[in-house]
Write a protein that binds this DNA or RNA. Structure first.
Lengths: 217, 217
DNA sequence: ACCTGAACACCGTTCAAGT
DNA sequence: ACCTGAACACCGTTCAAGT
């Protein structure tokens, strides 16, 4: 609809991609649009609402194309496992394009229609897997929380500064021992392939879902 | 050691507890200590380092009491399952005391000795469970990422504003349907007991760890 | 050694005014 | 209807000065 609003959100997203989320100030966004900071307010309504708008952008890119009344023929269902994998990977791809996404998604409910469609994708996969209905919302929260947390950890630097785990150097400390670290030193020294780790985690999550489903009568 | 530094960190933590992480400004902390903002710098060294100091506080409260050379007798090992549960619950308790913790932990590597001790606790539990050594670091990241993400979701509001999931109201939308939501409406309307959900998630994680361990030869 | 005061370059947002 | 300009109450941080 309103072209001005889209233009402002474009500028905010571009700014976050280029210089990080902290660089998204009303003043900086306004300058990029070529307007005074106060001119943004009627269109996006304050800083917090601007961030909500950015989340909206993310979700509309993530959501699978809508099924229109008389649209293209729907491809055959590839099975819940593949559906879940595809969903996780498209989320992962979005986080690679927009590394600031995870941080933002933790702090905004994002109850837009697109967000609901994304959640529904996971619900559908879990139902197809045979997870008891009473458990589906919990398991969806578990899966999405992990995926978001994984992306946020990488972006925020929680997993360490570079490719190597800094905890590798702490096999033994002067005044307290870390038996676990000591036993794992060779594996902690190895650089980590984060995308491969995500795939392994996904395989484990799928296994867990199978186990939960097999409890059902 | 330096009493002034501890005093400053005390003030910062108290401020975050009372008025949220955003209220922790150099100026506000200084005022609480009864000093000029610039007086903080020699003791904590800048805002970012102050936040690191707060993380340090959290980790030292979380870590189990150190085994001193000639200390109290060590209680019998309660088994890796109970060890993991206790660890998760003590983390959960910390997040309840300091709701800002999860957000901060995502953005700070926290490679202090206390942090390493906390990670080692999980390593030890996973090794005792029989998880292959090559997989222990990955599984530790999976478990801790989920726990942190769960706390951050609750605090950040990602799971909805109150006790009720707002997505419950979207069983059917005017111009696009959400079959998963529609099928789950009764369960989505129920308020969620987050502490109970965490226990269920923990049980699932333990089950997953058992499955990973049983793959090993 | 420890602290202060003034200053600089930033924030989000209100409010009255312009066209 | 849409935008500007000045102002207010905040930030983190530098730098020179005080005791």
């Amino acid at each position: 609809m309103s072209g001005r609003r889209e233009e402002i959100l474009d500028a905010a997203v571009a700014l976050a991609d280029e210089r990080g989320l902290d660089a998204v100030s009303m003043r900086a966004v306004a300058e990029r649009v070529g307007v005074t900071p106060m001119a943004l307010y009627p269109h996006v309504g304050g800083k917090s609402a601007l961030l909500d708008g950015m989340v909206g952008r993310l979700m509309s890119n993530l959501a699978p194309p809508r099924a229109d009344g008389a649209g293209a023929p729907v491809p055959a269902d590839p099975g819940w496992r593949e559906r879940l994998r595809r969903f996780a990977r498209s989320g992962w791809a979005m986080m690679e394009r927009h590394p600031w996404a995870a941080t933002l998604l933790f702090t905004r409910p994002s109850v837009t229609e697109d967000a609901a469609r994304a959640v529904d994708e996971v619900y559908a996969a879990l139902l197809a897997a045979g997870v008891p209905r009473a458990q589906v919302p919990r398991v969806e929260r578990m899966v999405s929380t992990f995926l978001l947390g994984y992306a946020a950890s990488l972006e925020g630097g929680r997993f360490g500064p570079q490719e190597t785990d800094p905890r590798a150097e702490r096999g033994r400390l002067p005044d307290g021992d870390l038996p676990g670290h000591a036993e794992l030193t060779p594996w902690l020294r190895r650089p980590v392939d984060w995308a491969a780790e995500l795939e392994a985690d996904l395989a484990d999550l799928i296994r867990l879902i199978e186990a939960i489903a097999s409890d059902a009568p």
